[in-house]
Design a binder for these strands. Structure first.
Lengths: 142, 142
DNA sequence: AAACTAAGTTACAAAAAGAAACTTAATGAA
DNA sequence: TTCATTAAGTTTCTTTTTGTAACTTAGTTT
């Protein structure tokens, strides 16, 4: 497992960034990490991630197209996630009152901004996928 | 809302990266985004994220310390997440058979590698927190 | 002998996710 | 004229996951 080298210095840098981000840490340990609770927690789940990634790849997708791409998702959950993502500003929903109805989803600029970060994370996950899977398999054998 | 400008070019770059990552897209749309399903989905939840962030800030934490820091988590879920994170290789658990027992958790180098990406994401979330919250408030008023 | 401690477990309740049938409204076929 | 079709969901019901709170363990101090 050819893990990138993490130096002591990098650890210090991480800690410093965290301190800068959550510097009011001493006051109240409770809701200091709110960007995580408020923003990330609601869009970092598996389905939202997949939806955003697919809309990064295919600029416009309709409900049933998304449902096919995001393999395994149910109507209900897809519908819920799309509403949440639209409400938070990540994507735009356009309805064409034809019959049968046509609805198109696409990322907003804000959604694209998030997508960029998500891609970085996914590139990392891609790189270390084997590492995680072998760790996991090892730990389960015990 | 002073959103960073997303150019058409940046969108193209994102799509290209996605294509590179999931280039075997045409074969089977199903499990192509597996680094997301396999790796990210299991550690991107709220609690795991908070645990890892706190262990980036405080290099070593005991079970009950974590429980206090990660405000709102229950024993059961904390225990489950710690096992998962340990099993996947993000953190190391050290038990000291004193009485009462002492157990310490700390990030592995692999955990620190993930932490760095997580911090980038959190910095983004921090930056656009207001944007998301106002979008959300707006959409709920309708 | 009873109380205390840290690090969990366990049993049970609440919330969320998933499966599958149903809805809506215009169109085209029988 | 009635029936089937279609896309985009919604609704109902079941299963899974999460959360709550009480319990466990084993040496130490009172």
């Amino acid at each position: 497992m050819d893990l990138e080298t993490i130096t002591v210095n990098q650890k210090v840098i991480s800690a410093k960034k965290l301190k800068k981000m959550f510097g009011h840490l001493d006051l109240r340990d409770a809701d200091l990490i709110c960007p995580i609770r408020d923003v990330m927690a609601t869009v970092s789940d598996k389905w939202s991630t997949l939806i955003i990634m697919y809309l990064g790849y295919y600029p416009v997708l309709r409900f049933n197209e998304l449902k096919k791409k995001v393999y395994g998702i149910s109507n209900k959950v897809l519908s819920e996630r799309l509403k949440q993502l639209e409400g938070d500003g990540y994507l735009k929903r356009t309805m064409y009152p034809e019959v049968p109805i046509r609805v198109e989803y696409e990322l907003t600029d804000f959604g694209h901004s998030y997508l960029q970060r998500l891609i970085e994370l996914t590139e990392w996950a891609q790189k270390y996928k084997e590492c995680v899977l072998s760790n996991r398999a090892n730990s389960q054998r015990k």
